[in-house]
């Protein structure tokens, strides 16, 4: 079992709120993602067993949403927005800067397992572009210095 008793309880709680069990798929996936950090086939099967839905339906929903990583990621998932507003004010250079600094390519994880760098579509913070989402937190109005500081802090925390 990958899911903890607590997560299963949470999923059951959420499932009870909806008239159709199918509606509970996304909340359940979120719970699982927050616990595990990524999703995989075994998790789909476990959720399926908990909310009594064929695992294939859960896998369909999970793979549709790119926000759920499907492979193990580093402790900090750096999600740089590359959509229009951010791109206009230099998201691309932020990505290359991070690539150079961390020594990885987009989509890869650093050797120490701390950082995974990906670029994502609009996160709805266009006013404060360029921006990055690290795990569940926004960091806005990015500059190179700000990024350096952020990475330092995260390294220190880890």
């Amino acid at each position: 079992m990958i899911l903890t008793e607590e997560s299963i309880q949470k999923i059951k709680e959420k499932a009870a709120r909806y008239p159709h069990r199918k509606s509970a798929i996304l909340p359940a996936l979120t719970v699982a993602y927050r616990q595990v950090g990524h999703l995989n086939d075994e998790i789909y099967r476990e959720i399926g067993r908990v909310i009594n839905i064929p695992p294939v339906e859960i896998a369909e929903a999970a793979t549709f949403y790119t926000m759920f990583p499907k492979k193990p990621v580093g402790k900090y998932l750096l999600q740089v927005c590359h959509n229009l507003s951010c791109a206009l004010v230099g998201a691309d250079s932020m990505i290359t800067y991070l690539e150079d600094k961390l020594g990885i390519k987009k989509g890869e994880t650093t050797d120490d397992g701390l950082f995974t760098l990906i670029s994502v579509e609009c996160l709805g913070s266009c006013a404060t572009a360029p921006m990055i989402q690290i795990n569940h937190d926004f960091h806005e109005n990015l500059t190179r210095e700000k990024l350096d500081k952020l990475l330092e802090e995260l390294r220190a925390k880890a």
């Binding site: 099967r45 695992p55 294939v56 896998a59 369909e60 549709f64 790119t66």
Partner: peptide, 17 residues
């Protein structure tokens, strides 16, 4: 059998495992 992913990589495949 299910549909996975989205956009131009949306694909049909058998259920996981």
């Amino acid at each position: 059998l299910g549909v996975y992913e989205r956009g131009n990589i949306a694909q049909i495949d058998s259920a996981p495992g």
